[in-house]
Simulated assay, not measured.
Amino acid sequence: MSRDRHLDVLYRDERFIAVAKPADLLMHRSDIAERVDDFLLQRLRDQIRRRVYIVHRLDRPTSGVVLFGLDAEAARAACAAWEVQAVDKRYLAVVRGWPAAAGTIDYPLVEEPGRAAQPAVTTWRRLACAELPIAVGRYASARYALLEVRPLSGRLHQIRKHFHHISHHLIGDTTHGDGRHNRAFREHCASHRLLLHAARLRLPQPFATGETLDLRCPPGADLQATFARLGWAEAQWAETLR
């Protein structure tokens, strides 16, 4: 196995394993990616030389912690926590503009064309702000913020759609974002990815009453470099992991 395919293992016991998913890596093979032959599921199977079972998913461009079951029963037991919304998910996200210090987005989302919108709620807490001396659109400088984001429901592209809804688009989002700010980050910050990272995942331990699986995934070197270019110290984002 080549070094660049190696996955960082964040947690492992007899029933579960959690790894750090790189950005721009699909979870598994699908009809919409027929020509892609590199997937998180297969990488992990190759690395630990055994079958694993998906518990939840991250979008292709999103990095961060992903939990797998090491057997089908374990995966089903962990999935039950998502079904009853007993999972605490915390993301780090970079958005355009300076949102309020904290807030809630309560806005139903349509997951599939032709279907009714489903309830969706996301909260955020602002961790840091930055202003870059670069012209974007009609403004002479550009403002950005680092947020800790908690989706309280699990709709498709929920975080990306919700921050589009309030006009604080996620940087690097080519589907729901702002192309002008995406270009600015590519040109001035050497950032070519979606700035969304699943930093922490907490859920009840399915096989130990009263215990919690608390899975933490620090940002990778690429994301930390972007934070540093924006003048954000580790102390400003590391509290999400504590």
Rank of each mutant, 00 (worst) to 15 (best):
L201H: 01
G179F: 05
V149M: 06
G210F: 02
L10R: 10
S63R: 00
D8Y: 05
L147C: 11
G231H: 06
R200N: 06
D46Y: 03
R126K: 14
R229Q: 09
G220I: 06
D59P: 02
H197Y: 01
A81W: 00
T104N: 01
E14Y: 06
L223N: 00
L44T: 06
R60Y: 03
L127F: 02
R57L: 10
H162R: 14
Q47G: 04
E34Q: 14
R202W: 00
R90I: 08
D37K: 11
M1T: 08
D88A: 12
P119A: 12
C79K: 14
V52G: 07
H192R: 14
P218R: 14
A225W: 00
P99D: 02
A208W: 00
A130L: 06
R76F: 09
H165P: 10
V36Q: 14
G210S: 05
G172T: 08
Q85E: 12
T122E: 07
G137K: 05
V55T: 11
F207G: 05
A80W: 08
L92I: 07
A116S: 13
E211K: 09
I105C: 02
L25I: 09
A75N: 12
Q224K: 12
I32T: 15
R126Q: 12
D31W: 10
P206N: 11
V19I: 14
V52S: 08
H181T: 11
I166L: 11
S167F: 12
F163V: 09
A18D: 11
L40A: 01
R180D: 13
M1A: 03
S63D: 02
P204A: 04
F227A: 04
W232C: 06
D24V: 10
A20R: 15
L203Q: 06
L7K: 07
L10P: 08
A101E: 02
R49Y: 01
V9D: 05
E234C: 08
A80D: 13
Y91H: 09
L132F: 06
L67R: 04
R76D: 15
P61Y: 07
Q224G: 03
R150F: 00
H28E: 13
R90C: 06
D8I: 12
R216C: 07
E83V: 03
P206L: 08
S63A: 10
A77C: 08
I171K: 04
G220K: 04
Y144D: 02
L195F: 05
D59R: 03
L41V: 02
R186H: 13
L201G: 04
W232T: 03
Y91E: 08
G172A: 10
L213V: 07
D88V: 12
R90A: 14
D24C: 13
